[in-house]
Simulated assay, not measured.
Amino acid sequence: MQNLIILLSTLAVILVLIALLAIIGKYLPKRLSLIQKNCWLIAHIMFVIVYFSGLFGTLLLANIATTTITDRELIYAAHIFSKYCDWFLIIPGAFGSLITGTWLSIRTQWGLTKYYWTIVKVLGNIGAILFGSTLMRIWFDQTVAFSSIGQMNPLQNPAYLHNRQMLIIGTMISLSILFFLVVVSCFKPWGKRLRS
């Protein structure tokens, strides 16, 4: 039940952000100039880099660090730092890329729903954020809890090993989604949406 509430509240925040950007963009008199567009595009790319960095950091800490070391305190520290990657890199990167990408779409010739590739990018980013705020959050919390000091050795705990494996798989899924969105952004496939 708690996960459903988190999922719905995250979705509500995302939809409110997109709606606010659309309303603000509608009432501004003209589109972005070339310099403004390039500045927003640089900001968008920087947020995507931060997003990628957080996911790579999580993957390195959850996969390499916790599978090669046996010291319980170091395993716990790796999961704490992995969670910090989520808080300070993945979440700001995801929301920053959503906001800057939405603003670029609304304030340029692309539009938010004129092209299939912009629709795919927005929906893909929303899906990645929802995946991260529900399932990934559970795996982050569980790996930290099961590796905490005072518990049994995490490498002998099947629940810890399962959650660590799911965190690694979830991080690779998130990286795949983000890589796909970057490819869509570069090649802009599928063309313009047909209006009826």
Rank of each mutant, 00 (worst) to 15 (best):
S53C: 12
L60F: 15
T66P: 05
L74M: 12
A77H: 11
T70A: 15
H79C: 08
A77W: 08
C85R: 00
A77I: 12
T70S: 15
Y84Q: 04
K83D: 12
A77L: 15
N63H: 09
L55R: 09
L61Y: 11
T67Y: 01
T67H: 04
F56L: 15
T58E: 03
Y84E: 05
L61F: 14
L61V: 04
A62G: 03
T67C: 01
I69Q: 09
A62R: 01
L60K: 09
H79R: 11
D71K: 10
S53P: 07
I64H: 03
D71L: 11
D71M: 07
L60A: 12
L74K: 06
L61P: 01
F56W: 11
L55E: 00
L74Q: 12
I80N: 09
I69Y: 11
G57L: 02
T58H: 03
E73H: 08
L74F: 01
S82P: 03
L60Y: 15
H79N: 15
W87D: 11
T66L: 02
I64L: 12
S53F: 14
F56N: 03
T68P: 13
F56E: 02
A65K: 14
D86W: 11
R72G: 04
L60R: 10
C85H: 02
L55P: 07
A62W: 06
A77P: 06
D71E: 06
W87I: 13
F81L: 12
I64T: 04
T68G: 08
L60M: 10
T66Y: 00
L74T: 07
S82C: 15
Y76V: 07
W87K: 07
S82I: 03
K83E: 14
I80A: 03
T68M: 15
G57A: 09
I69N: 12
T66M: 08
A77V: 15
T58W: 00
L55V: 03
C85K: 00
T58R: 00
A65P: 00
G57V: 05
L55A: 00
I64V: 13
Y84L: 07
G57E: 04
G54A: 08
L55H: 08
I69C: 03
T68K: 14
R72Q: 15
W87R: 04
E73V: 09
G54R: 01
S82T: 08
T58Q: 08
F81M: 10
A78E: 07
T66D: 06
K83P: 02
I80L: 09
F56G: 01
G54E: 02
T68N: 13
E73G: 07
D86F: 14
N63K: 10
A62N: 06
A65E: 04
W87S: 11
A65D: 00
I64Q: 03
L59M: 12
S82F: 02
L55N: 06
T68H: 12
L59Y: 13
L60G: 15
I75M: 09
F81T: 06
L59T: 06
I75F: 04
T58S: 10
Y76R: 11
A65M: 12
Y76P: 08
D71W: 00
A77F: 14
A77M: 14
S53K: 03
